[in-house]
Write a protein that binds this DNA or RNA. Structure first.
Lengths: 196, 196, 196, 196
DNA sequence: AATGAATGAGCCTTCATTCAT
DNA sequence: GATGAATGAAGGCTCATTCAT
């Protein structure tokens, strides 16, 4: 198998394993088995387990971006609503105890040294959200005085809220009402006020 | 050292270690070393590592309850605000990368079997919040139609927001504005409307 | 509790524990718990775990002797038969996997250093059997030319046969027929021949 | 070293260690040291200590079968006699305190979970003996009315007799006379009676 | 007479990683 | 490009035993 291909495959199975076992349950032995290669082969493509995880994080960034970009709704407010729905749907698809792949990294041991990379990924997601809000401003559906970054953070927080709930196994109580309320609350707050 | 004292000490150093290394970094060897005893001694006081962690969780429950009960402000709305401040202050006191001790358990591997206990702790914290909101209703500062449980969840979500931000190392950006905004938003929403 | 009394009690519970867990399952912790004392107390009465086991062996010797002496039948041949029955009955009373208490020591790790003591116990049991056979000779029910020691050994071997069968969990197959046959075979062989 | 080879080597040294220390004295550390590898290496070839022991049991089964098949004497009665001699010879070759390797497993702690496998091995050995006796019947050297299984059990019992004697360190007294007598006694009993 | 507190040594097992091929 | 063989370091836990009180 060509290096590029193999590399991609390893990343893919690792992502799958994270979903099944959580990051700390992803051992090199498991990755190798799932990829159908010997353990040392992993090291031909990645310098360390951390390297593999880092590569997965890159994929996760794309997936997270996919959620953010899942709706193309021209109405920005509506789009944000739909993004929220996509996040919720994505979460429900996973098994209890496993959150958003991105969030799985958040809960990984700091000792892995992934925090900085994680922060960057988070930043890029935040930027996407900021852009959406700015778009809303320019289209007039969002109040121009709103601090875009602040609003983006609050929406991000809403995602985390859902992720943690899922992790804790209280998603039924949270996803049904409180989380939707929280997002609606943010939307309402930033929405342009109709002229008196 | 008296058993009670030793037990407490072990719990204390374990709590400290959780702060330093995260739960999965807390090995029996580290606990023993930090407590200044041999490993088997730990087992004279606790049946297993899980037992020690469970004892810590108990302490953490108390600490979390302390935050919830930190304000006695008769004005419930104001009290919620102060609880938020207490949570924020508590977070800032900790090192970067270490969130709320309670939250540290949330991110622990499910394999530890602490999830159910954790859920209970969370539930008890939630109940405290529900009680506070109900008190607000009866004192007239919170709208009577508000679903107390839903509101309590949303406030809990706000705590998580801050915890995750801290864990990710983006607390500076989040704690300064967005998190306060989010809490204020909830408070505003549930607050009794002044008569027209 | 008086030392003698306590000592006896420890021996008693230890014997009971051997029945429940086998010798290697008898830990000092278990003995102490069963005796209702602290572990160090055991060491006030015995120099070591080995010492406790040794004391139990002494009791076991008496119990084994009890089996050998369980029948007072004046007819020696019949008496041997009854002793066999007593052994079988004793075995059946125990749980599967636990043999004769005496035999439990036979299977103990050699590293315990109980072998020599065990040999002595065995010798004393053998002697009892020899005496019985000699009695048979003098009463005319056993052939005078029979080597008493040899016959005694063979009967002992029959006991072992049953013990091992029990240990292996094949007692149903062995105790019902083969073992009885073996004993009868020995009895027949040593019995005085009726005059032609 | 090739896996097959290494595996075999581990089994071999383990068998040797069983002889030296008994099964409970065979620790993974000792096996590794004796095999000249690190402990984790053992786990590349066996799933657990129990797995290694199981593999040894397989070898032991073969060894035991070898004894049963050591004689090809066409006269079945004589063959049984020679098998007895082979067993005795095999025993004498071992050090005091160590019995037949097979028997070492009999005395192993039930907690190892080897009992069932052991029982199977015993059964297969028993079957071999049954076959021999049946052969004797068809060749006319053994009485046709004899219960083959019962006879096979009794011969097995004779082996155990010798094993226990060896274990107890009284082999000199037992192997010289009583055990031979016991076997002869069985042989005589099952042998075809010459026509009157 | 008894024990409370403690432990050194050891057990089986897993993990990420290396190196020669 | 891939791997077969191997391992140092560590992990949670148990055991018989000691010593001061």
């Amino acid at each position: 198998m060509a290096p590029e291909e193999r590399k991609k495959q390893i990343v893919d199975v690792t992502l799958g394993l994270i979903g099944k076992h959580g990051i700390q349950g992803v051992t090199t032995a498991r990755i190798a088995a799932a990829a159908g290669v010997a353990e040392p082969t992993l090291y031909r493509h990645f310098g360390s387990r951390r390297g593999m995880l880092l590569a997965v994080l890159e994929v996760v960034r794309a997936q997270a971006a996919a959620i953010t970009g899942s709706s193309q709704n021209p109405d920005v407010l509506e789009r944000i609503r739909e993004i929220g729905e996509a996040h919720r749907a994505n979460l429900i698809r996973h098994k209890r105890g496993f959150a958003d792949p991105f969030f799985e990294f958040v809960t990984a041991p700091a000792s892995l040294g992934l925090r900085d990379d994680l922060r960057e990924v988070n930043q890029s997601l935040l930027n996407r959200m900021v852009a959406i809000i700015d778009e809303g401003k320019s289209q007039g559906s969002i109040q121009p005085e709103i601090d875009s970054v602040e609003a983006a953070w609050r929406i991000t927080g809403f995602f985390w809220f859902e992720d943690v709930a899922h992790l804790l196994g209280v998603q039924d109580e949270v996803l049904s009402g409180p989380s939707i309320k929280s997002l609606e609350s943010i939307i309402t707050e930033i929405a342009a006020r109709p002229p008196a």
